[in-house]
Computed example of a mutant assay.
Amino acid sequence: MIWRRLSAVMLKEVRQMRRDRITLAMIVAIPVMQLLLFGYAINTNLRDLKAGVADQANTTASRAMVMDIVATTVIKPTLAARTPQELMEAIRRGEISLGIVVPPDFERRRAEGREQVQILVDGSDNAVQSAAAQLAQMPADTAVRAVVPVERPISVVAFYNPERRSAVNIVPGLIGVILTMTMVLFTGVAIVRERERGNMELLIATPVSSAELMIGKVLPYIAIGLVQTTVVLALGMWLFDVPLNGSVWHVYVAAILLIAANLTLGLLISTRAQSQFQAMQMTFFVFLPSILLSGFMFPFSGMPRPVQWLAEVLPLTHFLRLIRGIMLRGASLWELWPDVLALLAFITVMMSAAILRFRKRLD
């Protein structure tokens, strides 16, 4: 009798799962997604870092030295500058990660065996610092050794986090991770909760439009998200001595953009899910790629190009660039306008899709 009862319960669960298409999809999709992410997308070896070059010597040997550094494939020159100051400004704006400076007296330094090339590094990303340190220790290419000495002619100068403290890099990103996890979940169950509690009948009887309902559900959570931002920001500065080199108002504007993006995404999930459990499943399906592909845990530049295109769709990717640029490099929102526009476009698309999908009906 025990086995008959157990079999009946098991059969009921199997039939229920078979009717739940989202759960069935998650059974296959989650392990496949993790395998692809960790096996294909995640790569700790950085390649093609955006770099600027200021070759003030412009001699055969200096050009050979720069070509030797480029040949490592760690960097990809995207900016030609005249002075180190131009490179530092480009780093502050987030346009490049590294700057290669060849001084005007390169030939004299080479003859005296002194440091001949300086690499300026965006220290707000510890992975970039590590890549620059390895780059400085790489031996010169065989074809270049005739004109360039091999004895470590490169020095590395890191800005914004010269001590390479992990907290300086992690704490700003934690603001985005926490907001992504909580905001998507809050609104992800919003519409579903109205149905399960029987409140949808009351909403149907009111003159509130779909757009008013969607916007009304988003606005209260913006205040909650700002409270979370304040808590993480204050604790990070107090406990871990994380600097705030930019405007605090720009930090909050960037946080509002991410909060709104995540809330609208949660609303879209809520219009698709049939139960709160399904909404939480779909939230997890969004959260996992966000934390792995945004550059929070693993270097963004080490990912294959198609994966980087996918990561550009995620709000957390753009927020990390904004928050690290503002807090660590002292950049302004105007200098980081591409990521601001990306978040605004995401908010517009997600909110429009949620409004179009929502219907004030019980079915």
Rank of each mutant, 00 (worst) to 15 (best):
L174M: 14
L203G: 00
S275F: 08
L344S: 10
V307L: 06
V171W: 00
S352V: 03
A279M: 06
N199V: 03
L24H: 08
P338Q: 10
V313A: 15
T283Y: 04
F159L: 15
E335P: 04
F106R: 00
F186W: 12
M303A: 09
N245V: 11
L344V: 14
I91S: 12
V313Q: 14
Q34E: 15
F285M: 12
P304R: 02
A342I: 03
V227F: 04
A311L: 03
S301C: 04
L263K: 01
I204G: 02
I175S: 03
I42T: 06
Q118D: 14
M10H: 14
E335D: 15
I30E: 12
T317R: 08
N245H: 14
I178K: 02
G173C: 03
V192D: 03
I75S: 01
E335H: 10
L135V: 03
M351L: 15
G198E: 12
D68I: 00
F300W: 11
L202P: 06
G173F: 10
M200I: 13
L87S: 03
W334P: 01
I100T: 01
Q85W: 11
E201W: 13
A279D: 06
L239C: 08
P220V: 00
L49Y: 09
V184E: 00
L36I: 13
I178N: 07
T283W: 09
A143L: 15
L235R: 11
Y221I: 00
R164F: 12
M17N: 15
F285Q: 05
Q56P: 07
A136F: 06
M351E: 11
T60Q: 14
I119P: 08
I96E: 08
L268S: 05
R19S: 13
L258T: 00
F240A: 04
V231P: 03
A111P: 07
Y252R: 01
L362N: 09
R114T: 10
P153H: 03
L333H: 05
F298K: 05
T348G: 03
G216T: 08
R329T: 03
I256C: 10
A167I: 03
L258M: 06
A51K: 01
A57G: 02
R164T: 07
F346G: 00
L244V: 10
W334C: 02
F277I: 13
L320Y: 06
T229L: 10
L226G: 01
A29G: 08
A136P: 10
F358I: 00
V286G: 02
R152V: 12
P315R: 00
A254L: 02
E86K: 04
I170D: 14
W3N: 12
V9D: 15
I100M: 02
E89T: 09
V248Y: 12
S97Q: 15
Q276F: 07
T348H: 05
Q116P: 02
A353S: 11
V147N: 09
T283V: 10
Q85P: 04
A158R: 11
P220C: 01
S124E: 11
L98Q: 10
I269L: 08
R19A: 13
L341E: 13
A167S: 13
L293F: 09
E13L: 11
I222T: 07
T182N: 08
A140S: 10
G325I: 06
P172L: 11
A345T: 11
L179H: 02
V208F: 04
D105S: 05
L267T: 00
A81N: 06
H318T: 02
A342T: 07
I75A: 01
T182H: 05
P149D: 11
A167C: 01
V171C: 02
Q116C: 09
A51I: 01
I119H: 05
V227L: 13
V102K: 01
